[in-house]
Each structure stands twice: as structure tokens, then as C-alpha cells.
Design a protein around this nucleic acid. Sequence first.
DNA 1: CTGAAAGCGCTTACAG
DNA 2: CTGAAAGCGCTTACAG
Lengths: 336, 336
Amino acid sequence: MKKVTITDVARHAGVSIKSVSRVINDEPSVRPALKAKVDQAVAELGYRPNFAARALAAGRSFFLGVLFDNPSASYTLQVINGAYAACRAAGYQLVIENIDAAARDVSAQMEDILHSSRLDGMIVTPPACDSEAVLTALETKGLPYVLLAPGHEEPGASSVASNDAAGVFELVRHLWGLGHRRFGLINGPATHGASHWRREAFLNALAERGADPATVVMADGEFNFSSGIGAGLHILRQTPRPTAIFAQNDDMAAGVFAAAAQLGIKIPDDLSVVGFDDSWIAKSVWPELTTSRQPIWEMTEAAVQLLLNRRKGEKGGNQMFECTLVARGSTAPPRG
Amino acid sequence: MKKVTITDVARHAGVSIKSVSRVINDEPSVRPALKAKVDQAVAELGYRPNFAARALAAGRSFFLGVLFDNPSASYTLQVINGAYAACRAAGYQLVIENIDAAARDVSAQMEDILHSSRLDGMIVTPPACDSEAVLTALETKGLPYVLLAPGHEEPGASSVASNDAAGVFELVRHLWGLGHRRFGLINGPATHGASHWRREAFLNALAERGADPATVVMADGEFNFSSGIGAGLHILRQTPRPTAIFAQNDDMAAGVFAAAAQLGIKIPDDLSVVGFDDSWIAKSVWPELTTSRQPIWEMTEAAVQLLLNRRKGEKGGNQMFECTLVARGSTAPPRG
DNA sequence: CTGAAAGCGCTTACAG
DNA sequence: CTGAAAGCGCTTACAG
């Protein structure tokens, strides 16, 4: 079982190795007849290009990285899956990198990451995408990157975002339509752009319907499960108790389930709960969580595409994706 | 910011590139003085060897794969994290591969995986590690592999396993000590070796204490969250109702929480629940789950080591790790 | 549109 | 114990 190389293919097809290379890389201006011959030889010999050789000769690694610093395990897993698939489809490998963007030595961490893995590009997830130290390191290194859901305007940077505001509006319409009038809101940490715009969207949507935003009971969370419990307990101990809670992500919403269970409050009979993201945890609670689906799969796919286009010299861009309401069992009309 | 190559280092240190190569690869028989010079040059120039060049020249990829076909998202995530860290520490990259080992075309799937990614070795997780088609494909290709928690004896194969039986015994001792006498058991799917030995261990441990195994209410699950709900509902509707349930993994245990919530049964007051694995989901339920910790981190580290040793011509081995009882809030004495 | 040459940055034998 | 040569399998300029 010896390895088939580009030379074998060239010989088999009766062309030069350069022609084989052209066909493999989908370069333009290859005569169809030649391409057909090469394709056939590739198929017959079962040829697969050698990653290392391509990387060495081309001076790139065929590695794309995703940078994480996210408190939500389910969101992280979802982004990994999406980015992984997109990379594979494009003939790239995915490398996962973690940093602590709140630490004092972010620059050193970035230095280490950028130095050791020879990446061709990087997807930067929140909240790292809003860290000046992270972006500076990227710029200094000259590594192409794309920001996922950045909380600020970065001139000249490529980004992929979701229309959270519209998603939140839909959630509010859903809850309002069910008859809810007393609301609780669990915010994410201030370091995340999403915390701000999801809160604003929620309060604005209520105001639009004539509700007084001041009556909304708020609590702060960390976008993870356990902070959702604490925030949930706080809100559910208020009088009068809200009949519906919007947790700014699914992990915290799952925490609210735990808080409700502790207090003997039944979902959705006594309390409606909605989250955001539609990540894995949304279907791991009972009843299943009503939430707004962020199209992570499509978003990561777009991010990978932006990164690859950048290589071809094309300008980057800023893409926006729509969120979709996913109504499940955790919401119902309020009792009484 | 030009790239520093082995030639630069050699020149800077006043030695041949071969010597630099020896130092970098920790080859024996390098005089300390020479090594010191090289190390200094490496540090001063900030040299990092080029992955692609090493891979090409050495004829290996520096890629290790993990093969998954597992229904538990939290277990999967845990294995990924552990394997990832172990790979990084060893200077390798981790590639994640998924198959459907129950499908008819397993061989074709494996063929594709083995052909496209040039791996130096593979960690095979359950239940793929018990699929004959998977193992045959690996053998045919001649790719070194190590089995994670295999359910059968594979002559000559390296493996890493955990002592589940002892872990289950500890869980039973814990529950029995709290005063429980009526038990429910949720099995995993028959394709998983763990399903069998965890059940046997559970029933044996009870028998040892004089309990009649026939009184245990059993239900079958799929090692995922939603099957845990169904199995939980089934068990909790029995009369007399068990006061404690052992779900064979944490995901199913979390499902039991949902089932209990539906039926208005409080944990741990009305029902004690224990799982197995101590994966991420164990701390994402409330009260937190009492479980048996499988040392995944250490296990994956050992698996990577076995794979790398294999390269050095060393024989493989079969390692066994101990599980640890992690008592949390989901267990308490039965009421009344 | 196609090809022959050079070279990417390492490691593997092979000398000494 | 150390080094000079050859080569891993591709791609990048450069010709034609």
C-alpha cells in the first residue's frame, strides 16, 4: 500500500505534475480534456494530496483557528461543530485555542498562540472579539481574522453577526401574545456586546407595547448555568412575581429551571422561560426551552468563507444573519 | 517579521542544521555544550520548527485522531478536551472524526476517514471501539490505535479503561449507607460494553448486601438526556416507587431530573439520583448530581502516550484507571 | 493553456 | 558525537 503522489498521477495521465496541481487547486484556464484525464487518473489511483507538502510549498498551513473565551459550554460546542464542518468542507483543519481575555497577560497569551500554531486565519468569538489586546496582537502578526458577533465597530475588520434585536422582539411578541405582562430579565456580563443589545431590544420591545420598562425585574448573570440559578432565585422571590423570564442565553435559562424547581414553581404553568441561542442545552431541559435560534452553523460557515476570500485578496465584509423563534414547551399563558 | 528557519538557528549557533534538528527532537547523544548553544540560539531568535516541513520530511503528520460515535454530548466534550490537551503537550494536533458505527457502510466511512486525514494514530471511543468493521479498517491500514473503554478483549490491542465496577460499588455503598433499599436502574444501550458491566456491578453490589436483585426496577436508555426522561418516567410510575435511581451515565441522570420534575417528585427529598462519568452536565442540574468520576483527563493522556510509544517501537499496553465517588446534592436519606 | 526548474524547511540515511 | 547530501511532495515564479 504505497503512497500515491502527484508524480504518479501525472505519469498515469500523461501530463506534467504542474497540470495535476492546477486541476487539484481548481485553477482557471485548464482545458476540459486535460482536466478530465487528470480527474480520471486521480480517481483510478485513489490519489489524495499530501497536506504537509502543500503547506510547505505554498507557505501556508491550511489551519484555521477559533479563539474562545466563552462561559457557555453549549454555545462553545455549537461553534466548534459548525466551524469544524465548514473547515473540512474547505479542505482546512480546525484548531481550537483558548484564552482568558480578562487576564492581565492577554498579549502574552496571544503571542504564544500566534507563534506556536501557524494559522492561516482566525475566527474570534465573543468576548475575545472585543478585546483590544487580542485584536492588536492579530494586527501586529498580520493574521487574517473575522469577528463573530462583535460588540463594537472595528474599522476594516470582517465580521459575522446575528440580528439579535429582531430575535428578541420575536420572543417578546411571543410572550406578550401569550398574555404575559410581568417580566424578569437576566443579563449577561458587561464584557459581552450581546448583553447590552439584548437588554436594549427587550426593554424597547416592551416599551413599544406600552409596558413600563421600569417594572422589569433584572438580575445579572455570567452566561453560564450556575449564574442562571442565582439570578433566577433573585427574580422569583420578588413580589409580585414575574410570570415570564427572559434569560439572555440558554445556559442561564436552564439555570432558571433549577431555581424554579427549588422554589416549587412549575414551568410552564407557573412560569414561562425563554432563552437565546438555541444551543444544545435548550433541548436538555424539561420542558424543552423556547428560545431564539442563532444560525451558528451558517454563521461559522460564512466566517470561514470570509477568511478564505481574504486569502484570495478579496475584501472582507460584514454579514448579518437572522434569528428564528423556536417555540417549545417552556412557554404558556400565565395562570389566573 | 521574517520567518526564522533551522538554517538561521544553525548559523547563529555556529553548528550544522542537523545538530539543531537533534536538539529539537531530543535525540540522545548530543553534547551538553552543543545543546546549550542551540537552545540559546533558539531562544534568541524565537525559533519554532515548521510543522509542515517536519511532517513532510519525516513522513508523518503529527496528527492524532479521536473517533466518536457517542450519544452523550457531555462525555464527548470531556474526551475532546482531555485528548486536546494531551496532544498539545506532546506537540501533536488533534483531529476529531465522527462515524455512525451502527450504519451498514461503516467500512466505507472508515476508508474515507483513514484515507483523507493522514493520521499518525487514533483513539477509538465507545461504542466504535467494539465495532469489528472499525477495527478491521484500522488493522488493514496499519494505523496505530488505542481503544478507550473497550467492551471486549482485543488481542494485541492497546487500551485504556476505567474500573467502573469499583465505581458502581462505591455508589451502591453510598446509597445503601443513606438507607435506600428500593432501587431503579437505567441501562445504556446494549452496543456499549459499559452498559453490561455497570449493570452487573450494580446488581452484584446489591446482592452482596442481601438485597434481591429481582426487586430492582430496570429501564433501558440510550446514554442521552431524552432517553433518561422516558426511562425515568417509567421507573417513577412503579409501585412501590424506588427511592433511588442509578442512571448509567450523567446525561440519563439529568433526564431523570426532568422526569421527576414532571411528576412533582423532589430531588433529593423524595428521590435520590446518581449518575456515572462526572461529565459537564453533572454540575448543570440542580441539585448537582452525585456521580462516579471517570478520570477522562488522565485516561486520554495515557491513550496519547500509548500511541506515541507505539511509534518508538514500544509495545502497547492495557491501562486501568480508578473511579472516584463524587457525592453532591442529588442524594439524601429516603423520607419516612 | 501547459511545462521544466527551483525551492519550501525540515529529517533520513550515510559518512567520518 | 557531528555534519554534508539527498529528498520528502507539493507550489511558486518563470518560460513558451
